[in-house]
Simulated scan of single mutants.
Amino acid sequence: MFELDKVGKIYEMRNERVEAVIDVSLKVSEGDIFGIIGFSGAGKSSLIRLMNLLDRPTSGSVRLKGRDLTDMPSAELRATRQSIAMIFQHFNLINNKTVSANVSFPLEIARFPHAEREARVRECLSIVGLLDKLHAYPATLSGGQKQRVAIARAMANRPSVLLCDEPTSALDPHSSQEILDFLLKVNRELGVTIVIVTHQMSIVNEICNKVGVMEAGRLVETFSLANRAYQPVTDIGRLLTRHRDSSFNTQVESRRAYA
């Protein structure tokens, strides 16, 4: 569904040349919750911004359902981006707009009719359990509620892919768990493919079915968490696979059933 082929990104900073992403090839299948994990500075956030061309790759190609985003005319790329949503660590809500207006914002840009926008806003807020906050402002919400609004806004255009850049890093443990539950719900009930960037192994173990490990701008290994025969080559990979036991699988299945 989502394919990166030898993608690279170089930033020119004054007299410094920084290779943030180096020759990354990656395939994300439809229905995956694909985790990209690594330490700070590994290139994770740079990579996810290349996946929807918020940043344009210096080299390589990005394909969605076989279509090369890096070779699209601007108008076609804007239209295609509507199927790729993104949520961020710090929510990026518009503080002087209500919850309803925040969720409606991408629909206004896409010129949806007013009645359709209202119905879709209510539907999306219902998904994240915040219909009662329709007329509230972001300043009155908790961190977890703000991120749930961000998820609702991301789902407004009915995307096929949701990119998540450290979506729980700014939240307390209870709110983090709520967000993971809602991401599972979006994936399982709505069929949305999710790519989640994180430095937290607990998140990968909680909801991801596949994982890629990044180090110094390179994707050094990828594997399915269900593949018990796989022997990781990185320290992070080895730590992740230590949790692939029956109790872990039972926990994941119970959470998916709940979500």
Rank of each mutant, 00 (worst) to 15 (best):
Pro173Ala: 12
Ser61Lys: 15
Pro232Gly: 04
Arg49Gln: 11
Asn209Ala: 09
Val197Met: 10
Asp32Gln: 08
Ser224Phe: 03
Ile94Met: 08
Tyr258Gln: 15
Leu190His: 04
Thr193Cys: 09
Pro167Glu: 00
Ala150Gln: 01
Gly143Lys: 11
Gln231Trp: 07
Arg56Ser: 14
Leu54Cys: 05
Ser247Pro: 01
Gly129Lys: 00
Leu180Pro: 07
Gln145Thr: 03
Ser25Glu: 01
Glu19Ile: 10
Ser160Ile: 04
Arg228Met: 14
Ala156Gly: 04
Asp32Ile: 12
Gly35Gln: 05
Cys208Leu: 01
Arg67Tyr: 01
Ser40Val: 07
Gly237Glu: 08
Ser160Val: 09
Asp55Val: 12
Arg63Phe: 13
Arg78Phe: 13
Ser40Ile: 07
Ala75Gln: 15
Ile194Asp: 06
Gln231Asp: 12
Ala101Ser: 11
Glu12Met: 07
Ile207Arg: 08
Gly144Phe: 00
Arg49Tyr: 07
Pro159Ile: 00
Val121Ser: 00
His90Met: 09
Asn157Ile: 04
Arg244His: 06
Asn205Leu: 12
Leu183Met: 14
Leu47Lys: 03
Ala79Cys: 04
Tyr137Asn: 05
Tyr258Phe: 10
Ile151Ala: 02
Ala154Ile: 08
Leu134Cys: 08
Lys65Cys: 12
Leu64Ser: 05
Met1Ala: 10
Ser169Cys: 09
Ser29Arg: 15
Val186Ser: 04
Met214Lys: 09
Gln89Glu: 14
Asn205Ser: 14
Met51Pro: 05
Met51Arg: 00
Thr193Leu: 08
Asn187Tyr: 00
Pro73Asp: 10
Gln145His: 02
Cys164Lys: 00
Phe88Trp: 02
Ile48Ala: 14
Ser104Thr: 11
Ile203Phe: 12
Leu240Ala: 10
Asn92Cys: 08
Arg81Val: 02
Ser224His: 05
Val103Thr: 02
Lys185His: 11
Arg242Gly: 13
Glu221Ile: 07
